[in-house]
Deep mutational scan, measured.
Amino acid sequence: EMEYEEITLERGNSGLGFSIAGGTDNPHIGDDPSIFITKIIPGGAAAQDGRLRVNDSILFVNEVDVREVTHSAAVEALKEAGSIVRLYVMRRKP
């Protein structure tokens, strides 16, 4: 069973403070093209906020749908998102 969360982060000097993997051209798990959080960087915006978790998958960055995009398109969406970034994420319920 999945749960969904909308997380708004303010981009810090060091960016959003997380790493991603995945994409249609580089699936992270099997042939699932989802964009997954692979690392939360200590002291970064995501770590300070505390809600984003490793293995969360990002569905939307602001209004941009990143469910079926290449890795570089997801990176671009995050880069272009401005200083306030709304992430709509999905994760397995614990």
Rank of each mutant, 00 (worst) to 15 (best):
E1S: 02
M2R: 02
E3M: 11
E6C: 02
E6F: 02
E10D: 07
E10T: 11
E10G: 03
E10C: 06
E10P: 10
R11C: 03
L16N: 08
L16R: 02
G17I: 01
G17T: 01
G17V: 00
F18M: 14
S19M: 05
A21W: 12
G23F: 10
G23V: 05
G23S: 03
G23P: 08
D25V: 07
N26C: 03
N26H: 10
H28K: 08
H28T: 05
H28Q: 04
I29S: 10
I29M: 08
G30P: 12
D31A: 06
D32H: 11
I35K: 04
F36I: 05
I37L: 13
I37V: 07
I37N: 01
T38K: 12
K39Y: 07
I40G: 00
I41M: 09
I41H: 08
I41W: 11
P42R: 08
G43L: 07
A47I: 10
D49K: 14
D49E: 05
G50K: 14
R51H: 06
L52S: 09
R53I: 02
R53H: 04
V54Y: 07
V54K: 08
N55E: 06
N55A: 14
D56L: 00
S57K: 12
S57Q: 11
I58S: 00
I58T: 01
L59M: 13
F60M: 11
V61P: 00
N62E: 10
V64E: 13
E68K: 08
V69W: 13
T70W: 03
T70G: 08
S72H: 07
S72W: 09
A73T: 12
A73M: 10
A74Y: 04
A74N: 00
V75N: 15
E76N: 07
A77M: 02
L78N: 01
K79G: 01
K79M: 01
E80N: 02
E80S: 15
A81K: 09
A81S: 08
G82L: 14
G82V: 05
I84E: 09
V85G: 01
V85L: 12
L87N: 00
L87M: 05
L87D: 01
V89S: 15
R91D: 02
R92A: 09
K93Y: 01
K93T: 03
P94D: 15
P94L: 05
P94T: 10
